[in-house]
Design a protein around this nucleic acid. Structure first.
Ligand SMILES: [Mn+2]
Ligand SMILES: [Mn+2]
Ligand SMILES: [Zn+2]
Ligand SMILES: [Zn+2]
Lengths: 142, 142
DNA sequence: ATATTAAACGCAACAAAATTGCGTTATAAA
DNA sequence: TTTATAACGCAATTTTGTTGCGTTTAATAT
């Protein structure tokens, strides 16, 4: 459960309307350790949520800076909560993503240091992403 | 145009059958600086190629070690030619990819040093990819 | 050269993921 | 309370990729 105060503050900050569906969706992201796809979101809702509403909410959350796209092993749209620094104007995702070959989940590795190079052989680098594949902590111990 | 000798050598090396379609597909990859999606491939063929053949050829090329998947902004299947060291048993893609925001081309930056970390916080890392976005050399000077 | 074998092809059907259109409902602000 | 508009929900559609199956083609053996 997420307390109402946090929802108020968050939705205010990101300029989002507090509909019951979007509040539930935010809770889902907040309580979930790793990223979510539209299908996973759908499955976790007791009251069946319309997929169009899911996609549109995800899109809106992303534009606002609340969530960001993460890579997915099967090329699905998949999202994770942003750090609190993100806004519609500044999505700063300075962390690596890890795709588990076993469970197919995507994890954000917040403390993996990225190369900070801003140019290379004349190429101007505005954004640098790292995508790792391997075995995640839980799958390793099975 | 790609000389027949190269096709012979390449197809032999990767254990691929020399069908006219697959020879053309190889030429396409060989003559193209950037990566290719199924749709882009389809559009560049004069004689309309069946999409199933395209997907199956891409799959077969990938398994053989001739091409490898490249991340795509719109979650499409997208491929690039491998370095000549690749085989079905050893796909070694130890280079970064650069996507130019201006001209949309993909460049392989062979000499960009990748982090060599093999594990992080209990996650076992088998493969690490770097995708950069920015402005390429030619677009910078326009 | 010819026969044999298996991969590749082409077409239709299918499936999953995501998008669009539109009338209705709920929210925020006046 | 009224009003403007964002969000919702349902149907239809598009896009991307897959599966099945009979036919063709290429590599190999004879
Ligand atoms: Mn992330
Ligand atoms: Mn490459
Ligand atoms: Zn896992
Ligand atoms: Zn460019």
């Amino acid at each position: 459960m997420v307390d109402n105060k946090l929802i108020d503050v968050t939705f205010k900050k990101y300029g989002l309307r507090k509909t019951s569906f979007r509040k539930n969706l935010f809770e889902l992201f907040h309580n979930s350790l790793n990223s979510l796809s539209a299908k996973e979101i759908s499955l976790r809702f007791s009251t069946s949520a319309d997929k169009v509403s899911i996609y549109r909410a995800l899109d809106s959350f992303e534009k606002s800076g609340l969530i960001h796209k993460v890579p997915d092993k099967n090329n699905l749209l998949r999202y994770s909560l942003c750090k609190s620094e993100c806004t519609p104007n500044q999505h700063a995702h300075d962390h690596a993503h890890f795709l588990c070959s076993v469970c197919d989940e995507t994890f954000c590795l917040d403390d993996f240091t990225l190369p900070s190079t801003k140019s290379h052989n004349g190429f101007l680098i505005n954004d640098l992403k790292i995508i790792m594949e391997g075995t995640c902590v839980s799958c390793k111990s099975i």
